[in-house]
Write a protein that binds this DNA or RNA. Sequence first.
DNA 1: TCGTAGTTACGTACGGCGTACGTAGTGCGC
DNA 2: GCGCACTACGTACGCCGTACGTAACTACGA
Lengths: 237, 237
Amino acid sequence: MAGRTARPEVIWARPERTGRGPKPAYTRADVAAAAVRIADAGGLDAVSMRHVAAELGCGTMSLYNYVPRKEDLYELMVDAVSGEHELWEPSGDWRADLRRVAHQSRELMRRHTWLPRLMSGIYGFSPNALRYLEHCLTCLDPLEASSGTKMELIAMLNAVVTMYVSNELATAERTRSLPWSEAEETAVRIAYLGGRVATGAYPRLAAAFTEDAGPIDLEAVFERAVTRVLDGFAPRG
Amino acid sequence: MAGRTARPEVIWARPERTGRGPKPAYTRADVAAAAVRIADAGGLDAVSMRHVAAELGCGTMSLYNYVPRKEDLYELMVDAVSGEHELWEPSGDWRADLRRVAHQSRELMRRHTWLPRLMSGIYGFSPNALRYLEHCLTCLDPLEASSGTKMELIAMLNAVVTMYVSNELATAERTRSLPWSEAEETAVRIAYLGGRVATGAYPRLAAAFTEDAGPIDLEAVFERAVTRVLDGFAPRG
DNA sequence: TCGTAGTTACGTACGGCGTACGTAGTGCGC
DNA sequence: GCGCACTACGTACGCCGTACGTAACTACGA
């Protein structure tokens, strides 16, 4: 009953197990895995304390022994999938290595479509986030630049990857649990957009839409974006 | 009672007023303004159908005459504040113009701290979003590049601005409605981070943190990021 | 001209949510 | 071996989005 007053804390600083009392039935990793499983299957909105507890096999309120607030559950989830990042021995070519990092991040987000939404809201540095950061910095050893600049490069790369994948997935993620298909939805939106642009009020936009009318190659767009970010940090130019 | 079945639609395609029936008590702009007022004052989570209806001065369910789903209310909000973008006659220097666009976007998001969270989820093209896009393209007239490239430039600029401001605001937005102060929170997090890094497991990270120990100049970081994005699209190098 | 169909307005109600709180049981540290 | 910190979890409260029913109202087709 004691210690229930709310105080600022970082979930990662709180020890998973203190001496006293019966030993917890699950580990923190179990909790995270259950939440990730639910989010993967039913989207982020399906992640409720009740659902996760049920998936775990315990009462709803027992979850609060592992996680003080729902937001911390989110942090656990992000850290858990961040651990899926494969880390390798840097090749010596920092651009190739960072390109590989970017592609891996993209795959991670496509595997866990709820990740971008959480990434933009969480600012903490979870254990696996630290591992990932350190790995990126290691890849950047060959680059002659200040630590600050390197951090800015990593930040920008993450920003671009996150937003690009976020846009890629926006439709799919939104359509989930809506009573019509994604195809219907996009058809309606394209019809509307076409009508708007056809009014002639947006000549340059109209030109852009007619110019590349075909289905755009998301892969290529992503690749170009990453290249441009990396080029921006390459020495000389 | 008829026409209540859910069908895909774009809120902007739905006419604000059809012939029949009594004239609505409020305009769509009124609804958007009320929601924006609430979000500005109490954060995005304070935006509930009940609150907005109360702010507007009508019953909760009357709101659904103006907005079929809550998500559409979000679209209304984004469009409303997008209208705050000041559009000017392009100067002929596309880099200067786009830099100005970026700064304006940043100010917009700092004025409406909930905007980044909505931006990453909404993929529609509202009227004011179209206006904004066309303006950016107009600024890019002097740049010799395909429409596709120009669109990619705009997308990347938006991505970087959104994520940077999002990170800037993450702490503040999170602390809202939590029972402790932002200072307490960051103090706890920094203490944890320092402890983690001091273990020696992350040598490069440690170096980065000790190297630029002072408070970082967010303004300068943002400026550098924008410059780098624009440089990446400039001809030759 | 007038009936009626399509609107607006809105109260009620349902199923879900996060989580405060109380209680019972458990096992380590003193 | 006592006590306390901990685990487990049921109940309950106040929110949320929104389906649905009803009543008042107005523009259009006959």
